[in-house]
Nucleic acid binder design. Sequence first.
DNA 1: GAGGGAATAGACTGCACAGTCCAGTCCAGT
DNA 2: ACTGGACTGGACTGTGCAGTCTATTCCCTC
Lengths: 204, 204
Amino acid sequence: MAHPAESVFVDSRQRLIEAAREAFLQEGYRASVDRIAARAGVAKQTLYNHFASKDDLFSEVARLASSRIAVSLEGGPTDVRECLLRFAATLRAKLLSDEGLAMFRVLVAEAVRFPALAKAFYEKGPQETARRLAVSLERAMAAGQLRRDDPGFAAELLIGMLVGAERTARMCGLPVRDPADEEVRVHRIIDTFLRAYAPEGTAP
Amino acid sequence: MAHPAESVFVDSRQRLIEAAREAFLQEGYRASVDRIAARAGVAKQTLYNHFASKDDLFSEVARLASSRIAVSLEGGPTDVRECLLRFAATLRAKLLSDEGLAMFRVLVAEAVRFPALAKAFYEKGPQETARRLAVSLERAMAAGQLRRDDPGFAAELLIGMLVGAERTARMCGLPVRDPADEEVRVHRIIDTFLRAYAPEGTAP
DNA sequence: GAGGGAATAGACTGCACAGTCCAGTCCAGT
DNA sequence: ACTGGACTGGACTGTGCAGTCTATTCCCTC
């Protein structure tokens, strides 16, 4: 209960979570409890002092990761195009990073055995991100900067355009595309989206 | 070598592959050899008479499945919109079916341990589908029915719009969306795409 | 009806792993 | 000095599984 004791406690736990995160991302749920404990530099029993089971540890790791993945658009420029460009770059950086892909891979692989975890991940990640994007789009639509349409649907389409194809490719082991072209790629996607959602009565 | 003997042989093998496919789709690579043999109504040793190892069987199943997933646009209507609508419906039916999703889930989960399999899957499935779509788009662009642009890139974006969001949701265990709205959804996506790729100088 | 290839049931080996148990150490705070 | 809680290392149990082996049956072909 005293401070030093508690800090040791938290320390062990934190190290375990961090080690488990790395192990699960690398090996999936296959990562063994022994390897995780070893990676954390901790005895196996210590792991079981903090977590009731391997499933419990896995859930904890997944919940922590889920709470950090939504992408926001707040505080950006007011110009729609600039705002979307920023959003797009951030989203792609997160979802198409090695870590983002590994996280997705593991959660999807275990979604059948941990349905609640997968649902929570979806709600805090993809769904929340889409919701925020939709809010911004709706504002732009109301301001006449974008064609009036279902903002939620538009958000889904944009996110699909931004990550769909490349995520599929990378999930199948394809190498990263030349990062030098990343900016061009993002610009092209956003411009395509803006053409589709140009306010009505505007020449393309 | 005589016919009846061979047909028995093929029979066992076929049943094993089918059973393995079902088992792997349900349980992932976790599906045990014993369960697969039982499901095929066959002794475990028979399985090992046909396949050198579990990995070998898994590879065979994956290769067979990979060879049947590309979606084509040939033989359809010549009108771009009709053509894309047909393509969209077919693509979504395949990729968003329980089986398509399960296949994707399993392959993605094991992509790290079977990189060659994942690559082959990607090339025969997503990549080949995108290539075929790109060919059609290019033709339409040349005919002035679509804005002139990189057809490969346009194909990737369209496929992303068509499956991106919903595949993510379903992979995380979200329930199927009301199939009554499916047609509306496809129409809205295609129309959005067509707005983005309307020939230049056309009012929206 | 004899021979051979395929299939079968089931026992068996060896391994990796989750989870438990225990005897002992290291430190707080008192 | 003593007590209690966290941590350690390592042995141990039980289980599930891939893959092997064997003895036996079945059936087709000649």
